[in-house]
């Protein structure tokens, strides 16, 4: 038996005039999955999310959400989605609690039920003590949490999170991750976009790497790293020495070399052995770091560019 996917897309394209933002992508997201889009600015992540959220019409291809057609059944689909857009659009004229109760009304929930859920969700995102405050004085992290609470008010089957933690400090991010992880444990299907590889690694069961409107790789964070990178990465820094001149001298150390503006990356399954080889060649760096390979390396490997510029 195959489980029907919540999101099914084939050859999905989005064009704005002559410009192609999404250039034909295939997707299948199963119920209960945490699925991620990882990619740099302008990769087409938000454009894809908006099509999935039924607020943007696909230009070409097929798309079905929750087994329905987003063009014909947009109202029915949106009734079962929770959306956290890239830019917060909380209502500054309303209080924190009113933002949730008002939103509940758009889904046709009775007032009393809306109030009950609002109280419960504010508890969940740890904002109960700010319930009567206006939205503007909240910190970025609090606003983001409120937006996520708002997305949960209709008890959605599918939650879309467009860059849920961009611009937040590490502490606020960790709190958000922890809340999202709990949602995932409750069986909520999460689809998120990010340009943070650590976020993708933390939250996603499976992800696609997007670049310039296309999917360039797909898999679990682990399998992507195994396929597209080595087990370990050595980061070498040489102070002010021009790095490009070292490329030839390091040839053959590890499986691959990337020269970045500020450091050299050596890809090797055994990082310590690679460092030993560097020293043997008399190329002792000013600083050295051996670390496990990450999605950042996968992206660099696939596109020749770093994720966050």
């Amino acid at each position: 038996m195959t489980v029907q996917p919540l999101i099914h897309a084939r050859g999905l394209v989005k064009r704005f005039g002559d410009f192609t933002a999404v250039a034909g992508i295939d997707l299948d997201v199963a119920p209960g999955e945490a699925f991620g889009f990882l990619g740099p600015n302008g990769a087409g992540k938000s454009s894809t999310m908006r099509m999935i959220g039924c607020v943007s019409t696909p230009t070409e291809g097929t798309l079905s959400i929750l087994g329905m057609d987003p063009v014909r059944d947009g109202v029915k689909i949106r009734a079962r989605l929770g959306v956290c857009p890239q830019l917060d659009n909380l209502d500054p004229d309303l209080t924190v609690a009113e933002n949730l109760t008002t939103y509940a009304r758009y889904f046709g929930l009775p007032r009393a039920e809306g109030r009950r859920r609002a109280a419960e969700l504010l508890e969940f995102v740890q904002l109960s003590d700010r319930a009567e405050s206006k939205v503007d004085p909240l910190s970025g992290g609090m606003k983001r949490r409120l937006t996520i609470a708002r997305a949960m008010v209709n008890q959605p089957d599918l939650v879309l999170l467009d860059e849920p933690t961009t611009g937040l400090d590490p502490q606020a991010r960790h709190l958000l991750w922890e809340r999202l992880f709990r949602l995932k444990q409750q069986g909520v299907t999460l689809v998120l976009t990010t340009h943070y590889m650590d976020e993708a690694e933390q939250l996603c069961d499976r992800l696609v790497v997007m670049d310039a409107g296309r999917i360039v790789a797909e898999g679990s964070p682990r399998s992507l790293i195994e396929t597209h990178s080595t087990r370990e990465v050595v980061e070498l820094r040489y102070g002010d020495t021009p790095l490009e001149s070292l490329r030839g001298k390091l040839d053959g150390v590890g499986e691959r070399i990337d020269v970045l503006p500020d450091r050299i990356l050596l890809y090797a399954d055994d990082g310590d052995a690679a460092v030993a080889e560097v020293h043997r060649r008399d190329l002792a760096p000013s600083s050295v770091l051996v670390r496990r390979s990450s999605l950042e390396d996968v992206f660099l490997n696939l596109t020749g560019r770093t994720l966050v510029d």
Binding site: H8, C54, V55, T57, P58, T59, E60, G61, T62, L63, S64, G67, M68, D69, P70, V71, R72, D73, G74, V75, K76, D91, D93, L94, T95, E98, T102, R105, Y106, G108
Partner: peptide, 30 residues
């Protein structure tokens, strides 16, 4: 179930709901 999209057909308008219109109105009471 699934449409193959041709050019840019707009998202179709479904039946209007008095409940949702009411919700839009009541947003202004806050």
């Amino acid at each position: 179930m699934v449409t193959t999209f041709v050019a840019t057909a707009g998202l179709r308008t479904g039946t209007l709901s008095p409940g949702r219109i009411g919700a839009v109105i009541s947003r202004n009471i806050g």
